[in-house]
């Protein structure tokens, strides 16, 4: 795609860009501190309010953190500080989720490329894809329960089946939007189908693919938890959650929530880092202009 004209159109703003960048570097540091401060303040307020109120339902953050530590992270050094319950709870969930995510990503990108390359194939599949995307994924879980019975295959199937659509549709759209001029160049250079896919189609669809992957990741997380919340599962984070709920053990419920929040945050950040690495300059431009906007 023609990135050059865009940079030309940006040129008039360039005189301001340098000073803006300088301002940004100082700006991010200056802004990070108050944000952390506010977070700490919020935690303190929660701590004080919870202690003053003394409700069973809202334990203090300190107790939650302590409980999470005792529960999962006080293990021996040899096990990276993980306790046996952590190994039984967190690892199976993460394993299922990453397996589901990878499967969905591979299937989605592969099929998406196939569908997106040909206008006919796209027209053929579009209505079915739209419908598949519109079905709320949790409703399909009972179907998988019947077909696969409880256990890892069922959970994996639900994760893959709901996470594959965003990747598939976004990849297909991305492949469809490949600059025809570049396709012509590829034809002139007599690139083989594989070369064309690797050097032209994939790179140009990459931003779209990552937009799909981000959506898929959050769906994976949701479906992972949901499929474990159902009665009949034996391990996993969701199971820990329902188990604690049935014992009215609110401290554990809160600890699990914090754990899930942290996991979600880490996974998201990780995916963003990968995206930034792979798509490079483009993302940086976005970041730059976004920050420029907020300052």
């Amino acid at each position: 795609m023609s990135r050059a004209p865009a940079s030309e159109s940006r040129r008039p703003a360039d005189h301001g860009a340098a000073s803006r960048t300088a301002h940004l570097v100082g700006g991010t540091a200056r802004r990070a501190l108050p944000r952390l401060l506010v977070l700490v303040l919020a935690l303190c307020a929660w701590q004080l309010a919870a202690r003053a109120h003394g409700s069973v339902y809202f334990p203090t953050p300190a107790r939650i953190a302590r409980h999470a530590y005792d529960l999962w992270f006080s293990g021996p050094v040899g096990h990276v500080f993980l306790t046996p319950p952590a190994v039984d709870t967190i690892l199976p969930s993460l394993g299922r989720m990453s397996a589901g995510f990878v499967l969905a990503a591979v299937a989605g990108v592969g099929l998406g490329m196939l569908v997106g390359r040909s206008p006919r194939a796209y027209a053929l599949c579009d209505p079915v894809l739209q419908f598949a995307r519109a079905v709320p994924p949790p409703t399909l879980v009972p179907v998988f329960v019947v077909v696969f019975d409880f256990g890892t295959p069922m959970q994996l199937a639900s994760i893959v089946f709901s996470a594959v659509w965003p990747v598939l549709i976004n990849t297909a759209e991305g492949a469809r939007d490949t600059d025809p001029l570049r396709l012509d160049v590829a034809a002139v250079l007599r690139l083989t189908a594989v070369e064309r896919l690797w050097f032209l189609l994939l790179p140009s669809a990459l931003p779209r693919i990552f937009a799909g992957l981000r959506l898929s990741l959050s769906l994976c997380l949701i479906l992972m938890v949901f499929s474990e919340l159902l009665p009949g599962t034996a391990n996993g984070i969701g199971f820990a959650l329902t188990d604690a709920q049935s014992r009215s053990d609110l401290l554990t419920v809160w600890a699990v929530l914090v754990l899930l929040g942290a996991l979600g945050y880490l996974l998201n950040t990780g995916l963003l880092a990968v995206e930034k690495r792979l798509t490079g300059s483009r993302t940086r431009t976005h970041e730059g202009s976004r920050k420029g906007r907020t300052t």
Binding site: R133, A134, P136, P137, L215, S218, L221
Partner: peptide, 14 residues
């Protein structure tokens, strides 16, 4: 593109 097809279902997540 990036924003474009934010498929609603994906929206599912956050």
């Amino acid at each position: 593109d990036e924003l474009g097809p934010v498929p609603p279902d994906g929206a599912a997540g956050r």
